[in-house]
Design a protein around this nucleic acid. Structure first.
Lengths: 206, 206
DNA sequence: CGGTTGTTTGAACTGATTCAATCTGTGTGG
DNA sequence: CCACACAGATTGAATCAGTTCAAACAACCG
């Protein structure tokens, strides 16, 4: 998970002068802004989102700590911290070397996985998100912090928050997860993984 | 559209010895095979697809003539010629140079666009596909060849063929398209474009 | 305490699926 | 030239997943 940081040269990314705080849920960069920058996530969780005519936002990608938002969408996608985050912004050229070799195939792989999942049922998609957070966030298979609102989960998985709530209740009723205030507990990781067709292979670089 | 071919060195891609015919609808590479190769499309239309537990296939990307299928999914996605196609297969290393600069950002941009579109209604998604075929296939805004079955359109847009049929009928009833045996005619390109929120900017390289 | 944000629940509605049947064009063999 | 098979397109009816609207409930915070 931390490989990118090492590859790209710690001296750039660890420069404290470039570090920025990004408050939760305040757009860090709105859709439509030019993007020449690479944004490295140190802490928190960042979403790339598109907006349709009706004003509905659809999240198209997540970036966990250690991952990087590369330019390439011509600014069509906004950047939205789902939780309070720490970022380092560099000009893309400074770290381009590691883009081709490692990062881009992995990001494409994740995008394809999301597309392949996109027609599954809401139960499967929601379970898949929980699995992905567990692995990509490095939390392991016991539990993850409950850091997203149900509205945010809906933006990611393409449902209304009303339905997210029912899906969570259903996952709990099936004893796949448990919920406390601050955490989601995996009561049956293997069952959840199977329900979601989640195979972490797509998260390894090509 | 042909830029990639030029960039990557015509001598490799134009080598007639490497040219292969790929018959329509016979998997060229099944999901799960290793992928070390770059597959260049000379003619036809290629789909990358994933398969879920239920055996349903979901197409995650298309490759038109002049475009290339890069490795990076660890073989999780199969390659399926939607129509009879001409391909050139090379080892990825031989043409890696052009990957980072041009091709990958564009492919990521397209994947994001598909994800952003994925929650729109069936009418909008189908209209979007027609627009994308027109531009990416280089057919212009008058008409496109009717080369896909309604089952294939459903695989791409995530619907059943029954619904695809109804959507086509609806698009025709709204005088956005016309249908003949071999072609789909754009009767109101601007209206179709607006309905689909189709902005060809995402098809330009970053 | 009131204000705000997030969660939970109910009921009506709708887009899309599923199942099933019919229709149309195309090619094939007698 | 006709009989037949086959793939694709079209249509109808029942069903279902998810949305929408509306309201109640819970937790948190100044």
């Amino acid at each position: 998970m931390l490989k990118q940081q090492v590859d790209c040269g710690g001296l750039v990314i660890d420069d404290p002068a470039r570090k920025q705080q990004a408050p939760s849920r305040i757009p860090f960069r709105a859709a439509g802004s030019p993007d020449e920058e690479a944004i490295h996530v140190l802490e928190g969780l960042i979403a790339l989102y598109g907006v349709d005519i009706a004003g509905k936002r659809q999240i198209v990608a997540l970036r966990f700590p250690g991952e990087t938002v590369w330019p390439g969408g011509r600014g069509r996608f906004g950047i939205w911290p789902l939780v309070a985050s720490q970022l380092v912004v560099t000009h893309a050229n400074d770290v381009l070397g590691c883009y081709a070799d490692e990062l881009s195939p992995r990001n494409q792989s994740i995008a394809f996985e999301w597309l392949a999942q996109s027609r599954a049922g809401a139960l499967e998609r929601t379970a898949h998100l929980l699995c992905e957070i567990a692995v990509r966030g490095g939390y392991g298979t016991d539990k993850i912090p409950n850091m997203l609102t149900q509205v945010q989960v809906g933006d990611i998985t393409g449902q209304t928050s009303v339905n997210v709530n029912r899906i969570f209740a259903e996952l709990e009723a099936r004893v796949l997860i448990g919920r406390t205030r601050g955490e989601i507990i995996f009561r049956d990781w293997e069952g959840l993984r199977r329900l979601a067709s989640f195979d972490p292979a797509y998260l390894e670089a090509a």
